[in-house]
Every structure is written in C-alpha cells, then in structure tokens.
Simulated assay, not measured.
Amino acid sequence: MDDSAKSNRPLFDLDLLRAIVMVADCGSFTTAAARLHSTQSTVSQKVRRLEEMVGHRLLERGHREVHPTDAGETLLGYARQMLALNGRMLEALSGAFVAVIIRLGVPDDFVTGKTTQALAAFNRKYPEVKLEVTSGLSRDLIASYDRGELDLALVKQRRNSREAVACRPERMVWIDSAKHPSFHLDPVPLVTFPPRGLCRDDMIQAIEAMGRNWRIAFTSSSLSAIQGAVADGMGIGLLPPRAVTAEHVLLGEKDGLRRIDDFEIAIVHRPAVDPVIGELVKALVAMLDRESRPA
C-alpha cells in the first residue's frame, strides 16, 4: 500500500471506542448509556458506526446480554489500549510542567524526615522542579557524580579532601547494643561498612590504640543492616548521631575510645549550574546548620 492510500485510511474515534468498551463491560446498551450519561439510541449509533467502519459485526445482541463477536474481541483489545494510552497522555500533560530535573545524591543516613522535609519545602517553593534522589555510600555517590550521573551530591569525606561549595563538620559516635552489649568481648567485634568505607580504618586504629584485639564481625553497605547488627549485639559501630536508635547505647572517651572528628559533610556540584540548583544547595546547607545546633 502506498503512502497516499495509508493517509486516507479512517482514524478511530476514541469516543466510539469508549462506547463499545462500555457496552461490552456492562453487557447491556441500557446500562452502558446510563454510565456514559447518554441515551441508548446514541450508544447504539456509535457501535453501528464502528461496525460500518471495520466492515464486521462487533456485538451479538441477545435478549438479555450483549456479547462481542470474534472481530469485536479483537477490536476491544486494541480499544482498551488506546483509551489507556489516552488517559496516560492526559495525566502527563495535566500535571505541572517540569522545567528542571535535579539528580541529587545523599548518604543513606540522610534519607530521613529532616531531609525529606527540607526537600518537600524546596519543592513547594519550586513546583516546576523534579527531584531524582539517589542514596548510598558516599564513595559510590562521588563515583556517580564524577561520571556525570548526578548534578548535585551531599557526601561524607575526610576534611578538606575534595573541594566543595559547602562543608560542615560530621560528628561520629561509638555505639553498642542496649540489650546485648559486646564492647567487653575479646577480641572486640566490629560492625563496619565494606573496605574503603568511611570510618572503617579509624575504628580499627582506635581499638588498637587501646591495646585491645579486634575482629570484623559484620560488614554491610546498608545503613539499616549496620544499625540492626549493632542493636542485635553483633559488635560495636561508629555512626553519626542521626543514625543512632533507641536500641543503641553510646560509648566514648569514658570507655577509652577516642573521639572521631576527622570527617565532614560536603556538597558538590558543577561550576556551570542552573540557578535553581543553587537554591537547593542553600536549602541543604540550612538543613545541616539546623542539625548541628545544640538541642
């Protein structure tokens, strides 16, 4: 078939397709008409127009119920798809226009109420912005940022190890299980992030400085797994205060453990940046400042 013939082929009217789908679903022209806020004769006319258009009888009209013919079943399958696609298109176009997409990376322990509250407040101020948030280990977030997969990242790092648009100190605290403490064990069991994970080496050095033996009892890249392992007595851990739960107890200098204060929270983004990303940076910095204030 040449292009001119294809261009002259009739196009299906979604209003007609909606009518026959409703009749098939209801099994009755009368019920379908009521649901479509129309008359039975109008619905019947729409079905007849479709039948004339395709050259096949589409519905078998019985005394009590209406059933689709084989051709009707075929048409109904496509009709449902077309109506569903039309609905999805309307939903997509009726929403707010998304002018900017910001790909943001945050550590797992920042996927909390305070962070989501700050992001929600930002989104209310800039409803045209769509936030795509990725969480994970800081080392993985930085790798994603360097590959160009993130526009903006909030990461943990050793102080002054990487240039950033904003930095704030990251306090770390030693934790043990409230129900099943393990710090007294020999060797001391440690619950840590994987090798090259933040604070792992610092934990080992601190235990060795006490002259005590240690062993890695549990390793995970999941914050919730680390929290749970410590709570269940598998070993001691080192986390920021925001990640401490009621199932943990704090350890510290009174227990012979040195304070770990070599880390910071850094916010990085590219030099050529959309102004609205700068506004998001301000919102994140304000969140960090609120968190660091004494209770």
Rank of each mutant, 00 (worst) to 15 (best):
D25K: 10
D25I: 01
G27F: 09
S28I: 01
S28E: 02
F29I: 09
T31W: 07
A32M: 09
A33F: 05
A33K: 04
L36W: 05
H37L: 10
H37A: 12
T39I: 06
Q40W: 04
Q40V: 11
Q40L: 05
T42I: 12
S44I: 03
S44Y: 04
V47R: 02
R48G: 00
E51Q: 12
E51W: 03
M53I: 01
M53W: 01
V54G: 06
H56M: 05
H56D: 04
R57M: 15
E60A: 10
E65W: 11
V66H: 02
V66M: 04
D70P: 13
A71G: 00
E73Y: 05
E73I: 09
T74C: 13
L83S: 07
L83H: 08
L85K: 14
L85G: 12
L85M: 15
R88A: 15
L90K: 14
L90H: 13
E91H: 11
A92M: 14
L93A: 07
S94Q: 13
S94I: 07
G95M: 00
V98H: 11
V98F: 05
P107Y: 06
D109V: 06
D109N: 07
T112Y: 03
A118F: 03
A118S: 10
L119T: 05
N123E: 08
N123L: 13
K125Q: 15
K125H: 15
Y126V: 08
Y126L: 12
P127R: 12
E128Q: 15
E128R: 12
E132N: 10
E132M: 07
E132V: 13
V133W: 02
T134N: 13
L137W: 00
I142D: 13
A143R: 08
S144D: 15
Y145Q: 15
Y145W: 15
D146Q: 12
R147L: 08
E149Y: 08
L150S: 03
L150G: 03
D151A: 03
L152R: 07
L152N: 08
A153P: 01
L154K: 04
V155Y: 00
Q157D: 10
R162M: 12
E163R: 11
A166P: 00
C167Y: 08
